[in-house]
Design a protein around this nucleic acid. Structure first.
Lengths: 150, 150
DNA sequence: TATTGTTATACTCTATAACTATA
DNA sequence: TATAGTTATAGAGTATAACAATA
């Protein structure tokens, strides 16, 4: 009988399980987001720098699409980051309508410092856990990425 | 020798572990946040309704402090939610300077519908997982809450 | 003509400072 | 005098519409 799994004590209610994971995820994300190198920098600005670090230079349109934001909005964000010296605009040699946006050394430093702070906080939080719990978190991270890849 | 744990292949680098969990958490939180009942409602507005549902009525100052936002900013958010009929303002009988902000039935509906949608998305995502992976996520949720309680 | 980026303009959310009512 | 809330005003970040340059 297939419905047994539903009431089996070793596999609790799917609904409860989802709620618990939702709450835990939001709470951990909030704590992590609070750790940043430049505390005047918005999440949207940081996301652009992090994208440039991870995937290399982009055109304005590509950045806007990836961050699911309008082109004028991304243009403004890029202006701010350019003024701060964290990225550069270069006209595309082949298609002169385009501009290539790339991270500067200082921009890379900002991303790395923020990442370092977030990871340092998380490391110190999980370092104290027994190995078994750390193993759970390690496996969970993989499953969470699998789930969001759908 | 205590340092063995650090290089033991069964307990990978703490730094890698933290990074993986950070990325997975942000990604899952982002996907969850996208699910909402009223798609014109901001995260800040939803957070207020969720707080009122979870912890009951608050004064304006309490809400502002809990959400780490200025009083005028919270006042504006509360005005919007009041106009939409999702919460009520009532002068405090004892201290007439204060106003008690409480969820209406409609406000409760909005919170529950958003929570239902987020959980429905997450349920469908984890329902397909083998029991062993679901068990990992269930345990991880508990550990994540433990870590954020510090 | 179509596409890429930019400018013009407006709306929301945030903040600080000033004000009102109450303690 | 101090505190709770509100109003006034301004600074980011978002959007759509209109425009310029290039394909």
């Amino acid at each position: 009988m297939k419905t047994i799994a539903h009431t089996d004590p070793t596999t609790p209610e799917l609904a409860t399980e989802a709620s618990e994971l939702r709450i835990a995820t939001f709470r951990l994300a909030r704590r992590l987001r609070a750790q940043r190198a430049i505390d005047t920098m918005s999440d949207g600005q940081f996301a652009v720098l992090a994208t440039l670090k991870m995937y290399g230079p982009h055109t304005l349109g590509e950045l806007a699409e990836r961050e699911r934001v309008s082109a004028p909005s991304m243009n403004r964000t890029v202006n701010c980051l350019e003024e701060s010296g964290w990225l550069t605009r270069t006209p595309d040699e082949v298609d002169r309508r385009k501009v290539i946006i790339a991270l500067t050394g200082e921009g890379l430093d900002v991303v790395e410092e923020t990442v370092r702070r977030r990871d340092a906080w998380l490391e110190s939080a999980i370092a104290a856990l027994p190995d078994a719990k750390r193993a759970i978190l390690r496996q969970a991270a993989g499953i969470m990425r699998e789930v969001t890849a759908l």
